[in-house]
Design a protein around this nucleic acid. Structure first.
Length: 274
DNA sequence: CGAGGTACCTGACAGC
DNA sequence: TGCTGTCAGGTACCTC
């Protein structure tokens, strides 16, 4: 479900509420969500510990716990992480509940049960479900056009598939890839080694701009996504091609097309994108 | 290495 | 009303 801007919005929302709080109780209603370690070790190591920080890496949420532990959470599809005053009524899909010391719950809700949690030692991330294999952060200041150029030069696959690959670049998903490619004027099935310098530059800027805009508008909510307070984002109102099949291209007026590329539903303008 | 398919799950929606 | 098929913001794993 969530991509970089949605995860960033959730992290920003949670940081105001959970930092400095102690975990009093953990209610595990779906064991399989805890991927590492065992659910009993997971509970044992977290109980009565204080949350000292939270940050994002790609689409992963990293919650820093005292005693040099990191709770790593990936929401996958339909995952939500939100805060709520503690009570005993649990939504059908709230699988893990962290009860904090101010009578606030941090709840992990995930209709499709694809999301996973990992509890690892700080900076020891090889057990954290691929976190150690991520590519660069696209919004980092030290991720430059030159870096992007160098990374692309070694590749030959279609550009959409490559941008979805988290070990190539961290944080993009199906929505933001389609939007970035539209803004760059590049067809999603173009071979990476055919991209011209000026196209690579437009793509670099397109990726960064669309991610920044996504964060500014609090993410994209067209079905499940909600922030840490249960509110929708509004970037769905700014989408130019995603979920706009059959509608007019905002630039040329031609019809937006949807096809399967890299195994995913892919939206593009056959006139504006070359 | 890359491409393509399947699997993991549940729910919404279209069509009959 | 209800059945069936398809699709969904993600990723791991398998085969060729």
């Amino acid at each position: 479900m969530p991509e970089l801007p949605e995860v960033e919005t959730i992290v920003q929302g949670l940081s105001k509420v959970i930092i400095g709080k102690e975990i009093m109780e953990i209610i595990i209603r779906e064991e399989k969500i805890i991927a590492y370690p065992s659910s009993s070790d997971f509970r044992k190591q977290l109980i009565n510990k204080k949350i000292i920080g939270i940050r994002r890496r790609g689409k992963y949420i990293l919650i820093m716990i005292e005693d040099e532990l990191t709770l790593v959470i990936h929401l996958r599809m339909t995952g939500k992480l939100f805060i709520k005053p503690s009570d005993l009524t649990f939504d059908k899909h709230s699988h893990i509940i962290f009860r904090l010391d101010n009578a606030i719950d941090l709840r992990f809700n995930n209709v499709r049960k694809f999301g996973r949690m990992y509890l690892v030692d700080d900076n020891s991330w090889e057990r954290a479900g691929g976190l150690d294999k991520l590519g660069p952060e696209p919004l980092d200041d030290d991720f430059t056009l030159g870096d992007f150029h160098k990374m692309l030069r070694k590749r030959k696959s279609n550009i959409k598939g490559l941008l979805l690959n988290q070990s190539f670049l961290a944080g993009l998903g199906n929505i933001y890839v389609d939007e970035a490619l539209f803004r760059a004027g590049i067809l999603p099935f173009r071979r990476t080694d055919t991209l011209k310098n000026r196209e690579i530059e437009r793509l670099y800027k397109g990726i960064r701009n669309v991610l920044k805009m996504g964060i500014k508008y609090g993410g994209t909510s067209f079905r499940d996504y909600r922030n840490a307070r249960g509110e929708k984002g509004s970037f769905q109102e700014k989408l130019l091609v995603y979920q706009r099949e059959g509608k007019e291209c905002p630039v040329c007026g031609e019809e937006i097309v949807k096809e399967k590329v890299a195994g995913r539903g892919t939206h593009f303008c056959p006139h504006c994108q070359k």
